[in-house]
Design a protein around this nucleic acid. Sequence first.
DNA 1: ACCACCATTCGACGCGGATCGAAGCATTCG
DNA 2: CGAATGCTTCGATCCGCGTCGAATGGTGGT
Lengths: 229, 229
Amino acid sequence: MKLGPDISRVAALIGDPARANMMSALMGGCALTAGELAREAGVSPQTASSHLAKLAQGGLVTPRRQGRHAYYALAGEEVAELMESLAGLAAGAGALRTRPGPREPALRAARVCYDHLAGGLGVAMLDSLVGRGLVEDRAGSLSLSPEGAGYFRSFGVDPEALARGRRPLCRACLDWSERRNHMGGALGKALLQTIYDRGWARRLDGTRVVAFSAPGLAAFQQAFPGSAG
Amino acid sequence: MKLGPDISRVAALIGDPARANMMSALMGGCALTAGELAREAGVSPQTASSHLAKLAQGGLVTPRRQGRHAYYALAGEEVAELMESLAGLAAGAGALRTRPGPREPALRAARVCYDHLAGGLGVAMLDSLVGRGLVEDRAGSLSLSPEGAGYFRSFGVDPEALARGRRPLCRACLDWSERRNHMGGALGKALLQTIYDRGWARRLDGTRVVAFSAPGLAAFQQAFPGSAG
DNA sequence: ACCACCATTCGACGCGGATCGAAGCATTCG
DNA sequence: CGAATGCTTCGATCCGCGTCGAATGGTGGT
C-alpha cells in the first residue's frame, strides 16, 4: 500500500515521548512558550526547540512569536481530537502510566479537553442532557433537539449563533478515563465557559484539572441532574 | 504532563513506515496473513512478524491462527477511525507521497474505508443524501431524518435493525482525498454492501479500490443524484 | 514418515534520531 | 549602550530499534 498520504510521518511525530508530553500539555487549550513546554516534557530547551520545529513543520502545532517568547498552540480542533482518540486507544490497551500521579483522581473527575469539559463530570453532563431530551444521541452522533435550543438559550448560551460558525455545534468525544462520550464542539466549549463565568470551577494553573468549588459542584449537579444525582 | 494514558506508545507503533503500511493494507477491512502483510510493507517475513507482534500487543490488530496461516485484522472501528484521522492530517500537512502511483486516481475516485465507501463517490453519496433531506448534517454530526428511514428501507436497508446494534448508525468520517465528510457507521457499511450486491461495483483484489462498472456507475448516480449529476 | 510451507525466535549489524554542551541571535530592560 | 533572558543552530555522542540471515516450531500435503 504505497498510496495515500504518509501516515507514519504524523504518527512518528507524536510517537516520541517528549513530543507527546508537549502535545498533551497543549491539550489544555492555551498556547505555551517553548521553555514551559521543555519543562513539561522534561528535556532541555535545545531539545524542545528541535521537537517543536518538527511539530510545526508537520502541521500539528502553530508557532507565534511575541517579543522574545515563542508561543506554541495546537494547530486545530482536529489535532485535539486525534490526541483524544490516541488516549482512548492507549487507555483501552492497558497502557496506563505505571505510577499514577497524585493528581490523577482530580484529572479523572474533571479536566479540560482542548476547550471543553471532560472526565467524570463531562460525561455526566452529556448523560443528563441526553436523558432530558435536550441533546439527541443517535447512536454516537450528537445533535441539538428543538427543546434543547430553548434550554441552552435560557442557560446563557445561544446555539443559533454558535451554529453559524464553521465549527461543528456538538461532537461526541470519547473520554479516555470514562470510556464513554462527552460533548465537544462549539456548544461544549460554550458550556465550559459558562461554568467558569458562574464561578462554579476554575482551572488549576499548569494542569488540565478543572477544580469545582463545593457550592459550584452543587450548582452543577442541580443544573445537570442525572441518574447518579 | 506525566498523567493520563501513554499516548506515545500507540503513536510510535503507527509511526514506523512498515507498520503504517501494514495498517493501511488492513484498512481494506478483511484480515490478511503475515506473509501478505510483509509483501505489502516491503519487508522480510521475520521483520513483519516482529512488527505484527508489537501491533497486537498494543491492541491495534487482533491475530487469529488458522492452520499454518496467521491472519491479522484491525482491532476495531476505533482503530480505523484513528487511521483515517491520521491520513486526513497528513494530507492537510502536504505530506502526500512524493510519487503518486498509477492507481492513485482510482483510489481517489472510490475506495473502501474499513467497511464503507470513501473517495469522490463516497462524499458525493453523502452530499446527495443530505441535499435531499434523507440524512441531516448538523454541523458535522450526522443523523437519520424521518424521511430517510423510509427511503433506506425501500433501498433494501433496515435502519431500525441497524440502530439496535451497538455500533453508531451513521458517522461523519473525514475523507483524506476530498477533505470533506463521507458516511461511515453501520449505515455506511450497509450501503456499500448493497452496492456490491447489486453488482454496481466490486473490490479490486489486493487494493482498496472500488471499481464501478459503467452501468453500475450510472445506476449509482441515478440513485444518489447531486449537484454534480 | 517425509517434505514443503508458513510463521516465529534469536543474534548481529547498522542507521536514524534523540539528547545535550557550546555558541549565535533576537529582544527587553537597566 | 551593555547586560540579561529566551530561543535557536551547530556539532558530537550515544542509545534504541528496524532490519535481515540462520535456525526452530507447527501445520498440511503426499
